[in-house]
Computed example of a mutant assay.
Amino acid sequence: MAFIPTNTYPLLHTDDVFWNWEPLLQELLAQLDLKSIIFIGCYRRGTSTTVLDCPPTLLIIVNRKKDWTATCEKVISILKRRRLQMPAVEIVKIGFLEANDRTMAGDSIASSRNHYGSGTLGCFLKLRSPSSDDWRTFALTCWHVVVPPFVSLSNDDQKLIKNWNENGVSASIAKTDDVRRLLSLDHVTRLAYQEEVGEIEEAIQDIKDGRMFKIFKDLEVGDALELFTPQQRQRYDRHESELKKHEENLRILHERFQNDDQVLGTVFSGSGFKYKDLNLTKDGIKYFTSPDWALVHLSSCRQPSNDFD
């Protein structure tokens, strides 16, 4: 069973969490330590091809390998307090450096002009061109994810964004320089990049500040390595290996952003901000929906996947 792929489906209207998701998400965002958490969502997950056989599951995707037991227990306690008894809380780890060009549904993405926030890549779609019959892969996300922060824009660019917010972006204008310039997206995001750089730099400094490492370095400068015991030499070599690995990872991260390797693609079409009445009611209350969406034309180097695992 361990090698059977996990399937992911949307929640059903009959699921209690469907109607309680927004307040639940707000509590999770307030109560959890969000460092290294790149995605929180709720789906039906399981190995069955039948959606009813896959239970509602709270899915958390993280980009750092550590013990997430305390986070899992806190989530379970929140669910119990809200009387949302889910069969599973699933935490999936994906490494920033290990991801390389692989781009997965559920990953964090952001406007290339947004250095301090991020949104979620929903999934990948293959659509056939009506003119050529060629199939092309697009990323699907929400419109609010692709809109750049207004504070970073000129007055003319703000007018463009306001127009697109009201009227959307059609495929006919997606190839314009304005769209390429203002509606490009990053994966990995600059926020994640900055956090990862900070963690690596901290790890490097911790090694260099170590008392024994400083002693080892002084002996090395004095050409006195023969004074090491075999155990000390082994310890020194381990520190040196860890230091070189961290420094190489730091170089790779900087290089990716210097070469714009983080660019996921540009918006191909999008809805803007629109609210619709989809006749969703519960207990006499009508729920309006904002089905805002954006299709992103992917950079050629990307390796898209709809798998969370």
Rank of each mutant, 00 (worst) to 15 (best):
I78W: 04
I94R: 12
L59T: 11
M86W: 02
R81K: 14
G95P: 08
I76N: 11
T69Y: 09
I61V: 14
I61W: 02
V75Y: 02
V62R: 05
L97I: 14
K66A: 07
G95Q: 13
A99Y: 00
E98K: 13
I94K: 12
V62F: 08
V92S: 04
T69M: 11
Q85I: 09
G95L: 11
V89Y: 11
C72E: 15
V92A: 02
I60P: 05
V62G: 04
I76F: 08
T71I: 08
I91K: 14
N63V: 05
M86R: 07
V75S: 02
K80G: 01
W68L: 10
R81F: 06
R83N: 13
Q85C: 10
L97P: 04
R64I: 01
K80I: 04
K65Q: 11
P87C: 07
F96P: 00
N63G: 06
P87W: 03
R82N: 05
W68E: 06
I91L: 15
P87Q: 13
L58P: 07
N63C: 12
N63W: 07
R82Q: 06
W68V: 07
S77M: 05
E98R: 11
I94E: 05
E90W: 12
N63R: 07
A70E: 10
K65C: 06
A99D: 00
V92E: 09
T69R: 14
V92W: 00
A99G: 00
E90R: 12
K65Y: 04
P87Y: 04
R81A: 11
E98L: 10
V75K: 04
R83I: 01
L59C: 06
I76P: 01
